[in-house]
Every structure is written in C-alpha cells, then in structure tokens.
Design a protein around this nucleic acid. Structure first.
Length: 204
DNA sequence: GTAGGGATACACT
DNA sequence: GTGTATCCCTACT
C-alpha cells in the first residue's frame, strides 16, 4: 500500500464529537484508525493520521492505570470522554491517550503511532534528524514530535487547537487486531489495532 | 539484548 | 515523610 499518498485537505475536516468517544473503548480504538490528529501551534499546524491504537479499560483491566481506582494522575480517565490523558513513563517518555466511555466510567485509547501529514519540519526539529518513518512511529516518539507533555493532559480534543478530525482516506482501511504490547498484565486481550501494511506502525 | 531515566503508588515509619 | 518496585519506551550496542 502506498501510505505516502496524501492528497486531501485536513484543514476542512471536522473534529469528532464527544459522543464518538463516549462508547465502549475497543470500538473507539478501532474507529480511530485513519482519523487525523491535529495540533495547531504557533510555528506550524501539526497533523498526522492515526495508524495504531490500543484500548485500556477501567476497573476490570489490570493493564490500565484506572485498575486500582482514581488517583491524582489518572482521574481524567474517569471524567467525560473526548479529553486527552498524557502520562510520563520510563523516565523518558510521554504517552498520549484519549479518554473514552461515559462520564464516571474509566477508559482510554493509547495513540501508539501516527503517519505525519503536515508540520513535518517542526516535528523533525524536536525529534532530531531522523528518517520520516521514525518521526512518529511509537507512542513516545509521537509525543516528542508534537511537543506533548503532561501539561497537555486533560485538554478537550473535540475543539481547537488540539483535536482529532474525521479521516480523509477514501478506501476501506485494512485493520489488524492483535494483543497489546509493552505491558506485563492482561497481555492476551486483543485490544491493539493497527493499519495493516502501514510503515508508520511501531511493530508489525 | 539492555542501559537509561523520572514520576508514581503504596507500604512502611 | 521516606524507601522502593514498577512502569502502555527508545536508542544504543
């Protein structure tokens, strides 16, 4: 597949509504593949297509931050859907999640990989001189490319300047479902979704 | 294959 | 308040 074939105008795309996010987390994770993450910044409009996600549930999911109940860090996961949840891990990396499920129920989708569309220069400046495929092909990489930190946790992703828009891809997207990776608990659940054959996916 | 790094949660004073 | 095990990773060898 030619994943570099980018032709449509993301600027006119509509942000996804809150009701999109307020559903069962794996459904949201699945449907987020092909959607477009947009972050309007001073120096550039950064945008990228979502090519890989993972679903994390609440109290019933041992791999989820929400498993042990509300804490200062994870409380946004229990709030209204459509908000961002950013956390810091392994001493080096931030990870970007989108809150799902109705207000009061925990759930989040981890954005694991993106395919850059615009603002590539700004991303490269933050990431250093790496290959295009290495810019955003991992959860820690994409937050670095977008300049996302914990300060961006709890933001509303249904409106500007930081939002997720409808996809622009006209053909059906081949989506592969696998087990989640990088975790030690509940590894067997089929909660990872990625765009089959897309070279920006972190691990195939 | 593994070093590196810092925040977090929780068990203890 | 302090100690420490753990963590949804990356970049290097």
């Amino acid at each position: 597949m030619d994943s570099g074939n980018i032709r449509t105008c993301f600027n006119n795309a509509k942000a996804l509504s809150r009701s999109f996010y307020g559903r069962y987390t794996p459904v949201v994770a699945f449907e987020l593949i092909g959607k477009i993450l947009v972050f309007k910044q001073k120096e550039a409009v950064l945008s990228a297509r979502i090519v890989e996600t993972e679903a994390y549930l609440g109290r019933q999911d041992p791999a989820s931050h929400a498993y042990r109940g509300v804490t200062p860090r994870n409380r946004v996961m229990f709030g209204p859907p459509g908000m961002s949840y950013v956390y810091f891990t392994y001493g080096n990396h931030h990870c970007l999640n989108v809150v799902t499920e109705e207000d009061g129920t925990a759930g989040a989708v981890l954005i694991r990989a993106l395919e850059p569309i615009s603002g590539i220069e700004a991303m490269t400046k933050r990431r250093g001189q790496v290959k295009l495929e290495a810019l955003t092909s991992g959860p820690g990489k994409l937050t670095q490319a977008f300049g996302i930190t914990r300060e961006h946790s709890g933001l509303d992703l249904t409106c500007e300047p930081f939002y997720i828009a409808e996809g622009d891809w006209e053909e059906p997207i081949p989506i592969c479902v696998t087990k989640r990776i990088g975790i030690s608990q509940a590894k067997e659940l089929p909660f990872r979704f990625y765009w089959l054959g897309n070279k920006f996916v972190s691990v195939s």
